[in-house]
Simulated scan of single mutants.
Amino acid sequence: MRSNRERTESTRRALLQAARSLFVLKGYGGTSTPEIATAAAITRGALYHHFSDKQDLFRQVLEAEAAAVRDDILAAARPGLSAQAALIAGAEAYLHSMTMPGRTRLLLIEGPATLGAEQALAIDQANAGSTLREGLVEALGMKDVDCDALARLLSAAFDRAALEIDAGADAVEVENAMVWLLRKSLA
């Protein structure tokens, strides 16, 4: 017999998984809440019990995706690595993590289009963006560069690289170019 908490978590998980699949397949605009509820095998009322609206559900899907990317970066940039080695390991982990089917579309296309650039950027800054900034601060120390500005520029380059890979570019070539760019930024 499952507790109320276990049932609640199971329902939330089912909704998030169903919503993610549909948002990847059809985009935010092409997905309806009745479709999500049906795919999750729950009622629309239950959906609205857990999420205030479709945009709230979408935001939480994005937050989960962004957190998964951050976790992959942190796992790769393990303690004991030099700051530069950790940044490079994190860069490679970011690009690899973004190859999860649908992730690039959700985080880099649907997210900004649905939530707006400011909210999508805030989600990134709370996750992968913060790991990049922190790594740059540690690696560059007191060099004569604004680490916040550099982090934003490199983040945009990483996002563009993920889009290139998603569009069919050679992943190894793109990753090599990004690692080269990162090394040059740290020199």
Rank of each mutant, 00 (worst) to 15 (best):
H96A: 14
I73N: 11
L74P: 04
S97F: 00
Y94C: 04
L62A: 05
A68I: 03
L95N: 13
S52C: 00
G45Y: 08
D71Y: 01
H49D: 12
A86Y: 05
A46I: 01
R59E: 15
Q84A: 15
F58Q: 03
R70F: 03
Q84C: 10
A75M: 11
L81M: 14
L57S: 09
E65G: 03
A85Q: 11
L95E: 11
D53Y: 00
L87C: 11
A77C: 06
Q60Y: 04
Q55D: 01
S97K: 01
D72R: 12
A77Y: 04
I88C: 06
Q55G: 02
Q60T: 11
A67L: 11
S97Q: 04
L62E: 05
R78F: 07
Q84T: 15
L81G: 11
G90C: 05
H49R: 14
A68S: 14
L95Q: 10
S52P: 00
A86Q: 09
A67I: 04
A85F: 04
L95G: 12
S97P: 04
I88G: 03
S52G: 02
S82D: 15
A68E: 15
R70C: 10
A66D: 12
G45V: 05
R70I: 06
R44T: 14
I88S: 05
H96P: 01
A86N: 11
E65K: 01
E92K: 13
L95D: 12
G90H: 02
I88T: 13
A68V: 03
A64D: 14
A64I: 06
D53N: 09
V61D: 03
L95I: 10
A67K: 08
A64N: 14
G45E: 10
V69A: 11
R44Q: 15
L81K: 11
H96M: 11
Q55E: 08
Q55V: 02
D71R: 06
T43F: 04
L62F: 01
Y48Q: 05
L57F: 06
A76H: 07
P79R: 09
